[in-house]
Amino acid sequence: MSSPQQARAQASAITSGRTAPDTDAAPTSRLREMFDGPRLSPGQRRIAQYLIENITEAAFLSITDLAERAGVSQPSVTRFASAVGFSGYPALRERLQAIALSTLAGAPAENRSNELQSAVDAEIENLENLRRDFADPDQVIAVGRALSRSTPLTVLGLRISASLAEYFAYAARRIHPDVRLLTRGGSVAYDALLQSREAGGTWLLAFAMPRHAQETLTAVRVARSAGLRVALITDLALGPLADEADVTFATGTGSRLVFDSYAAPVVMSAALLQAMTDADPERTHARLEEYEQFADQHQFFLKD
C-alpha cells in the first residue's frame, strides 16, 4: 500500500510528466462530474464514493489496494475504469493522480458537503427540474384522466421498480375500483396483461428505473401488442423503453449513493394520482369515504 509520503513523491514526479492537473474546479467536483455521467452499478458506485472521499491517497493505490479499500474485486475495478471511459485502470489512475495534485499541492479548500448532503442536493435539483416540467400540467392531467377511465388499470414495476409500482397501486386502489399490480416478469406478466385487456382495460402504467430490466421492455411490448396503451415513468426520455411507450414522464433519479433514490419519481406518481382523483371527483369521494368508515370500524390505524 502507498503511504502519504509515497503519494506526494509520486505526485511530484507527475508534475514533470505529460499529465497536468486541472485547477479550474475543485477535485471532488471534477470527480463527481466524471462519475455522474455513466450509469454505474451499486458496486461501481462504492468505488466512486471511495475515490471521491479519499482522492489524495486513492489516486496512487495499486488496483489490488484500491479493490481492498473499496471492498470490491479487482475485476470490478477494471470494469469501473471502463464504465467511466478509460481503457483500463492504469489510464484511470493517471487521471486520478492529475486531479489529486491540486489537493496535494495545497490548493484552496473547496466548500464541500459530505456524500449524504450531496445526495440530497442532487435530489433537490431533480425536484426543481420536475417543478419546471409541471409549469404545463396538461399532459399529466390528460394521462391521469385516461388512467382513471381504464378498468382494470394495470401497474407494472419489475425488480428495483417494484416499490414504486406498489406505492402507486396501493394509493390508486383507494380511488379506482380495479387496479392490478404486476411485480413479476415473464409469462406471469404476459398472462396478466392479456387478461387485463380482455377485461376491458385500456392503459398500463409502467415504472422503469435504473438498471433498466430487459423483462420490462418485453412486458411493455406485450402490452402494446395486446392493445393496451402505455404510460411510462422512467429516468430517460430517450431509449428503447421510451420508444415503446405512448407517453413518457422522464424524471431524474438520485445516483449519488450506492443505491438510487427516487424523490422525483414518487412526486410524479403522486401527481398522476392527483389527476386521477380530479378526473372523477364523485367516485373519488365515495370510495375514500367508504374506506375511512371501514378503516375506523376495524381500527386499521392508531389514533393521533
Rank of each mutant, 00 (worst) to 15 (best):
L181S: 06
I141L: 11
S187R: 12
D138N: 09
T154N: 01
L164A: 10
L193C: 15
G157C: 03
S196D: 14
R145H: 04
A169T: 06
Q139S: 08
A171P: 00
L147W: 05
L194Q: 14
V143P: 00
D191P: 12
D136Q: 03
L194T: 14
D191N: 13
L156H: 02
A169Q: 02
S161D: 04
F168V: 04
D138H: 08
A172C: 04
L153G: 03
R174P: 05
R159K: 11
R145M: 00
A199D: 13
A189W: 12
A199M: 15
G185S: 13
P177D: 09
E166P: 01
Y167Q: 10
L193H: 14
G186S: 15
R173G: 09
S196M: 15
S187E: 14
D178T: 07
L164D: 05
T151F: 02
L193A: 11
D191M: 14
L153M: 07
R173L: 07
A165S: 01
A142F: 02
P177N: 09
L194Y: 13
L181I: 06
A142W: 02
G144H: 03
L158Y: 04
S150Y: 05
S163R: 14
P152N: 03
Y170M: 10
A162G: 07
L147A: 04
L182G: 07
R159E: 11
D191V: 13
R173S: 13
V188F: 13
G157D: 00
R145C: 00
P152F: 03
L164S: 07
L182V: 15
V140F: 10
L158V: 06
F168I: 01
A146S: 09
A169E: 03
Y170S: 11
A165Q: 00
V179D: 06
P137I: 02
L164F: 06
Q195S: 14
V188K: 14
I160K: 10
D136W: 00
R197Y: 11
T154M: 04
R145T: 01
R174W: 08
L147T: 04
L158C: 05
T154A: 09
V188S: 13
D136S: 05
R180N: 10
D138R: 08
A165P: 00
S187Q: 15
P152I: 01
R173Q: 11
V140Q: 04
R173T: 09
D138C: 04
H176L: 07
D136G: 00
A146E: 09
S148L: 06
R173D: 08
I175R: 11
L147S: 05
H176A: 05
A142L: 08
E166L: 03
P152W: 01
S196G: 13
R149C: 04
V140W: 09
G157Q: 00
Y190V: 15
A171C: 07
L181F: 04
H176C: 06
S196L: 12
V143R: 00
S150G: 07
P137H: 00
A171H: 10
V179W: 06
Y167K: 08
L158H: 03
T154P: 02
R180A: 06
A172K: 01
P152V: 02
T183R: 10
A162K: 01
G144E: 05
L147N: 05
R159M: 08
T183M: 08
S163T: 14
T151I: 12
A171N: 09
R159G: 10
A169K: 01
V179S: 07
I160Y: 10
L147Y: 03
A192T: 15
R159C: 06
D136V: 00
F168T: 03
A189K: 11
S148I: 03
S196P: 13
S187G: 15
A192L: 13
